[in-house]
């Protein structure tokens, strides 16, 4: 379990992480989302004790990182795939990390095998592709068989096989009761892996909720309908109380207020040709975009309002 309370990091006048409070629970995969520069990596560095918080605190399994006796058995982290000496072989890199905890060479070979790096273990890490570097970082994170795994952008640079492998690994680790914390800016990836999402923007937590709940609360509901009879279908849907919006394509409409099942029935009753019916209300990307759009609107709205400016001036 990772617990952050009022965690804050300022660099000069810039606030990278702003009074952030959250808990990452064991047994599930928690996705940590936000645009680049939102404060994801800074938060992760503070969890690992690499950066000192300006204010607030964060604990790993109940202790500040610096107080952990065997940190690699508590939390395994991949925070920078390039953070390896380029002229040292992958195996020797892992042996050096393992030596800090007296972890055996046998375990080093196990994680190499687990990450599919056995054949390239003697090659210098500097010659690795980005994807191989990510695998090496994950191998290092798994060395101590940790209770928590924390990966920063783990699928960056991975081929489709690698992406699937990371997804399955994360699921398996969570199913075994471990805490899994993954950051990403790829919404579709998180949607397929995470049970819970924490969303950060400009250093602040914008949302912290189970994935399904978050999507339901923020996604623009809608059903995308493709039909050669789009015009007729639109009329029928409107008559049934739905709202219709035209989409880029003339055979396509977007319907809100009526679910996909009902639209199908309307089409059948009116003998209209239905080519495609797609429920769009379950996309994390949509929900995320909607949430961040609200945020931007809110921020943009404040300084332009005359009354607000006057109020600010009088304070």
């Amino acid at each position: 379990m990772i617990e952050a309370r009022d965690l804050t990091k300022r660099y000069g006048s810039k606030t990278a992480v702003d009074h952030v409070t959250f808990t990452v629970q064991p047994g599930i995969v928690t996705g940590f989302l936000g645009p680049n520069g939102a404060g994801k990596s800074t938060t992760m560095r503070m969890i690992l004790g690499l950066d000192k918080p300006t204010a607030g605190q964060v604990t790993v399994n109940g202790k500040p990182y610096a107080k952990l006796v065997t940190p690699l058995s508590e939390i395994g982290a991949l925070i920078d795939a390039k953070g390896v000496h380029p002229r040292r072989s992958a195996r020797q890199h892992l042996r050096a990390v393992a030596a800090t905890h007296g972890i055996s060479d046998k375990r080093v070979d196990e994680v190499l095998d687990l990450t599919g790096l056995t054949e390239v273990a003697k090659r210098k890490a500097g010659n690795f592709s980005l994807g191989m570097g990510q695998r090496l970082g994950i191998a290092g994170a798994l060395l101590g068989d940790p209770k928590i795994v924390m990966f920063d952008e783990p699928v960056n640079g991975l081929d489709p096989d690698g992406v699937l492998w990371v997804r399955q690994l994360a699921r398996r680790l969570a199913e075994n009761g471990r805490t899994v914390f993954l950051s990403s800016h790829l919404m579709s990836e998180v949607q397929q892996t995470a049970d819970h999402v924490i969303i950060i923007g400009r250093g602040k937590i914008l949302a912290d909720a189970p994935l399904q709940e978050f999507v339901r609360a923020h996604a623009r509901e809608g059903v995308l309908v493709t039909s050669p009879d789009a015009g007729g279908l639109a009329e029928a849907v409107k008559a049934a109380g739905g709202t219709v919006q035209a989409v880029d394509h003339r055979e396509r409409i977007s319907v809100t207020g009526i679910d996909a099942r009902e639209i199908g029935r309307i089409a059948r009753d009116n003998s209209l040709w239905l080519a495609e019916l797609r429920d769009e209300s379950t996309s994390l990307e949509d929900a995320y975009m909607h949430l961040t759009a609200e945020e931007t609107e809110y921020r943009a709205g404040v300084p332009t309002g005359k009354t607000d400016t006057a109020k600010e001036a009088s304070q």
Binding site: P71, L72, I103, R107, E110, D145, R172, L173, N176
Partner: peptide, 14 residues
């Protein structure tokens, strides 16, 4: 467990 095919991983004070 899942990441330890076979034996347990023993760690010592760092």
């Amino acid at each position: 467990t899942d990441t330890t095919p076979g034996t347990e991983v023993v760690t010592h004070r760092a």
